[in-house]
């Protein structure tokens, strides 16, 4: 049962990721990206990272994807019914991509990875919160500063100067 669910999630993730980069309709790409992000959230749950899965759904699907769809809507004329986008140099891209994949797959297969058997954690959000507030306090504060800078920068860039 678990194996079937895992295979299904992997198939959804990779299949819709393929659609993101292949389809000629920009909105289809965005919708396919939604399924990819959901699939990745499912993979997180299989890795006992349920808090990360929640964050993935809230920030990626609720935030970034909506922002992307906003961008698609704002950069196309309403009159143009077909919001299509073309690809170029498919052959060159495929060669480079397969080259990278041909390097990564044997590397993963041949390396003897250290695998520790760990136990399923009782609570994840609690431990992550403790780490953020104690060990990683400085990166946490820097991240909040980065978000503030991005907020002001994006508002400055996109305001109408006229």
């Amino acid at each position: 049962m678990e194996n079937i669910a895992f295979g299904l999630i992997v198939a959804i993730t990779l299949g819709s990721a393929l659609m993101v980069v292949m389809t000629q309709q920009l909105l289809y790409s965005a919708i396919a990206l939604l399924f990819t992000l959901f699939g990745v959230a499912g993979l997180y749950i299989f890795m006992w990272a349920d808090f990360m899965a929640g964050v993935q759904i809230v920030i990626y699907i609720g935030g970034i994807l909506v922002l992307l769809i906003f961008g698609i809507m704002l950069t196309n004329k309403i009159s143009s019914v077909n919001i299509s986008h073309t690809s170029l140099q498919r052959r060159v891209g495929a060669v480079i991509t397969l080259g990278v994949l041909g390097f990564l797959i044997p590397m993963i297969t041949n390396t003897s990875w250290l695998q520790l058997s760990s136990e399923e954690p009782a609570q994840t959000a609690d431990s992550i919160g403790r780490l953020l507030m104690m060990e990683y306090l400085l990166p946490f504060e820097v991240a909040s500063l980065l978000l503030l800078g991005a907020l002001i920068g994006a508002a400055m860039l996109s305001r109408n100067t006229n």
Binding site: S87, T97, L101
Partner: peptide, 28 residues
Amino acid sequence: ISAILFSLGLYGVITRRNGIAVLMGVEL
């Protein structure tokens, strides 16, 4: 899985011409 996802994202970044589609590749 992550290697395949990375390759697909790289393919999108290389071949797409629309800026938003390139951004989708970066997200992958």
